[in-house]
């Protein structure tokens, strides 16, 4: 895992609500796969899509909390199995 990388496919955001477009900058400091993180229908599992281990996934949760000024509760974090789930969580926290 390398911090300080870019987000491949960052321009590809079809289907992502504008309110969560900050998700990409929030994740930009984490190494991601060469495929777009978002813009795919499946919006796969966070660890698989981001290619991060669980220690970095904690960092991702903290990044999201900081970027969106939300608090991700344990029970909500439990439900996040895909990037799409993370997007839903952010949107519901902002509602």
């Amino acid at each position: 895992m390398t911090r300080g990388g870019s987000v491949p496919g960052a321009a590809l955001l079809p289907g992502l609500p504008g309110d969560v477009s900050n998700l990409l900058p929030a994740l930009a400091s984490f190494h991601v796969s060469s495929r777009p993180v978002v813009g795919r229908r499946d919006l796969g599992s966070p660890r698989k899509s981001l290619k991060v281990n669980s220690a970095r996934l904690v960092d991702v949760v903290l990044e999201i909390e900081d970027a969106f000024e939300i608090e991700v509760k344990d029970e909500d974090a439990d439900k996040v199995k895909t990037i799409g789930d993370a997007v839903k969580l952010i949107l519901s926290s902002q509602a």
């Binding site: 669980s54 220690a55 904690v58 344990d74 029970e75 974090a77 439990d78 439900k79």
Partner: peptide, 25 residues
């Protein structure tokens, strides 16, 4: 602590549990 939680997580998944992303559980 972290490694212990991760090891337990991997075992819990095999038991059909879904501990999710919450290490504190």
């Amino acid at each position: 602590f972290f490694a212990a939680k991760e090891a337990a997580y991997k075992l819990l998944v095999k038991l059909g549990e879904e501990p999710g992303l919450s290490h504190r559980r």
